[in-house]
Amino acid sequence: MLTCDETREALPLLALGAVDGEEAGELRAHLESCAECRRELRELEAVASAIALTVPGTRAPESLRARVLTRVHAEHGERAAGTLAAAGVSARVGWPRWWSRRRLWWATGAVAAVVVVGWAAFLQVEVLRLDSRNAWLEREAARSREVAPVLRMLAEGRDVVSLPMEKAPSLESAAAVVLWDPEYSRCSLVIDGLPPPPRGQHYHLWLWGPSGDRFDGGALQPQGGTAVVSVDLERWKRSDYRVVVALEPAAQPTPVLWANLVTR
């Protein structure tokens, strides 16, 4: 068995790979039992490794790059195919690897597209649902705004004038009344049993003045045949006028509901 000193004498050449044969065997035998010499050898091997950096620099041929990257790409394809096979996914034998890879990308893309489209559709439905709900809430809020003055007039015990509205024959079944508060120049129309308007038309509220002037009260939006509309009559305070509900659009708007008010 070699001593540590004898071993260390030979370690530099061993680290350089220049010791072979029987001597190398003797050195290995000593190293197996000597941690200190093993550590010494590791350090010398590390130094020897750095010697490789002293080589003259030479550009690697471009063709080598193509060779290596192509080979790696091919091995990657095999690895992926092996993974798929291990996962129970069968691959079509005989198809080029790039095609399998491309198919994988397409499949991934297709799944992603389906997910995106599905999600977008869901969001669209949600948006529509929310829009619908918002519209309903807005209609309800509008109705409340229309109904509130009526309730206030009644609740406050005002001297409210109740005027049943005249009806055209087509609205014979409807019940319509104008609640008029002359002191505050307000009135509200309360209509029930209003039939659906003919296709392409809607009920529209007007205030007609004695000298032909007209105030547009907007479209009626009955809910289940019921409509409540409140109107500020301030500008009509000193004139007679007619509250009119007409079907529009029409060449000649014809009142289907109306009531004549006379301001004080």
Binding site: A60, P61, R67, R71
Partner: peptide, 26 residues
């Protein structure tokens, strides 16, 4: 690439074989 090829070429002194070894290393 240049380092690997240079070392390979330094040892082998043959461009074709040096490329083979460089490929193996990578």
């Amino acid at each position: 690439a240049d380092l690997v090829y240079s070392v390979s070429l330094r040892v082998l002194r043959d461009a074709a074989t040096a490329q083979d070894v460089a490929q193996d290393v990578f």
